[in-house]
Design a protein around this nucleic acid. Structure first.
Lengths: 348, 348
DNA sequence: GCAGAGAATGTTATCGATGCCAATAGTGCG
DNA sequence: CGCACTATTGGCATCGATAACATTCTCTGC
């Protein structure tokens, strides 16, 4: 039974509105749901009553009765990394525009259990659908079951049977970066990849390798970071000790910052001695020194696309799960330049 | 009426569990709510039935009946700025730990209408309480009413009657930064502030001014940015033209990146010619060149504190709204140094 | 051995909105 | 002028869980 604790001052219900407007509750419901079959005069009366009472539809009741909540859940990794925030932002905008609320469940780690529990928290809340914005490496019976019972769209790098996938073409991103460096005249391009479990990272690595192979260049062994600037810094220190490395494609701008710092500290100039291309185009990329050449990722757009897919799926559960992807774009700034043969020796 | 669309396969309800366990629905409810007055044997039977049926409590029904949703809403500004993401992160963690779900409503602008509509979206969703994580400058009747009817905790810089406030001591942050620079021997310290409407920005400005005055130094006119690196860059260009500016305290790391870039481009060295202190301690601050001296803000901690306050208030609506604040901390890196009298002339 | 406190469990009304179906009021057309 | 038909509107059961209250059972203490 509902709370009676407050001083008898209960917020108005549909029945109250109906009474004031002199119609039935059902009609009020129809007006509020934009049903076509309501006379303008009646609609006006109802709306006036709604306004007068300051009535707001009770979402809980609505949800219980209709079985839908007009809420979409987002499972996302809890980090400060730019990319996640940008995607979430895009999702929220698109959802709001479509009249959906957004409920977030963050997970601190990527293991099956953590993701599963984030999913079930959302399921318990009764979300209509879920956007999985984490790389789902291993699935589990529990996860499969949850994604089967709740419409789910996976962003970039989730592997489940019951989900549609929306992605940015990361292979293309890597190709753009690699080609740019080769076109500048570099013999080959090194790569600092993201963590192997992330599909995004793997795709970028593949795209980079493919580009080099297509151009008939040597493929240096890739280094691996964890997206953090600190890991970029560590990789940068390694790179600095390799005399003939003149160009590197880094899988995130944040790591690129670390790489550049490491290179400078060890006396390698950017871009004179070594060119660096990042990925993401975070806002600070332009204010790094030197300003970072990078591959911009349409994160917000992807978030919006994910919402669109989810809504389409909700509207018509039978629709075919056609995968979609959006394209990244190269942004050339000042961290890349043609190789200068003379100065490819580390000073350190 | 609930959806009948699916093939008659309705998820199990409490009644089903009750039937399987051979008890009443009420008892099931008690078991699930950890009521004390249930025999262990009964509890076990119920839990077994729950497990067997894969039963999950229906949140909508729960909410409708009990009047509470165990969900807290967060109103936040839609940006990629580090600080907002960090706060939200802290909120989510704390909320999850307390068994609360989090629903987010972002607003693109700070005007009364936008914030009001974010608040009402949350209210419509039936959140138990709200954390206002945006600077609320002007209130409105609508907002006052919403914050009165829904328990609200404001983070840093919201001005409403009906809200508790949790904040980081920004005055202290500014004092730490300013004192650090004065202690290094600078005659005075310039300031690049955040947007005037943000209480955070105003407090930092006040703290900075107070520190200078306390030390009997001249107070230069503050410049103002909008938190973005681009605005920092613009302010940096102005600063570069002021020959006797040897130290600057910037109200955010992101702006500080822009400032440093502008200074370097115009030939002023950091920190030799001019010292820069940022605010926030974003992850990239350490990888700026030079590594940025900054005032670290315990954002996540503040988010957690906000949740704690809100929950306390929910548990005991009568409790006094004691304001709380957490303390920032100075992190000295390499962007600050004693002034070198010789080189305080711009090269440009 | 019995009254009465208190634990354990069941009964019932209700929360607020919606869907289905019936009822009523108009409308067009033969 | 009346019938078939449609646009409006109301009645009622229902979603799933909870709170208040009732009831049954189990022990103490005297």
């Amino acid at each position: 039974m509902a709370k009676r604790s407050d001083g008898g001052e209960r917020p108005p219900g549909m029945a109250d509105v109906a009474r004031v407007a002199g119609v039935s509750a059902q009609t009020v419901s129809r007006v509020l749901s934009d049903h076509p079959n309501v006379q303008d005069k009646t609609r006006a009366k109802v709306l006036a009553a709604v306004d007068q009472l300051g009535y707001r539809r009770n979402n809980a009741a609505r949800m219980l009765s209709s079985g839908r909540s007009r809420t979409i859940g987002v499972v996302t990794l809890q980090t400060d990394f730019y990319s996640r925030a940008a995607v979430t932002s895009g999702i929220e905008n698109a959802a709001r525009a479509a009249g959906y609320a957004v409920s977030t469940a963050t997970t601190a780690s990527l293991d099956t259990f953590a993701i599963g529990s984030a999913l079930s928290r959302l399921a318990d809340q009764g979300v209509d659908g879920v956007i999985l914005s984490v790389p789902l490496i291993h699935s589990s019976e529990r996860i499969e079951q949850l994604t089967r019972s709740t419409p789910t769209v996976a962003i970039d790098g989730s592997r489940t049977d019951a989900t549609e996938v929306v992605a940015i073409d990361q292979t293309l991103a890597a190709r753009l970066a690699t080609r740019h460096l080769l076109d500048l005249g570099h013999d080959t391009v090194w790569h600092i990849a993201g963590p192997g479990q992330w599909l995004e990272a793997a795709s970028r690595r593949d795209g980079w390798r493919a580009s080099l192979e297509a151009a008939g260049r040597a493929v240096p062994p890739p280094l691996e970071g964890d997206w953090s600037p600190a890991s970029g810094y560590r990789s940068g220190l390694v790179l600095a000790r390799i005399p003939d490395a003149t160009a590197v494609f880094v899988a995130s701008d944040e790591m690129a910052f670390g790489v550049i710092r490491a290179l400078r500290e060890t006396g390698r100039r950017v871009p004179e001695d070594i060119s660096v291309v990042g990925t993401d185009d975070i806002e600070l990329a332009e204010y790094c020194s030197p300003p970072l050449t990078t591959v911009a990722q349409p994160f917000a757009q992807m978030g919006a696309l994910a919402v669109a897919h989810l809504l389409r799926h909700l509207a018509d559960p039978g629709a075919l799960p056609e995968p979609a992807s959006v394209e990244p774009r190269l942004v050339v700034r000042a961290s890349t330049a043609p190789p200068s043969r003379s100065s490819s020796v580390p000073r350190q």
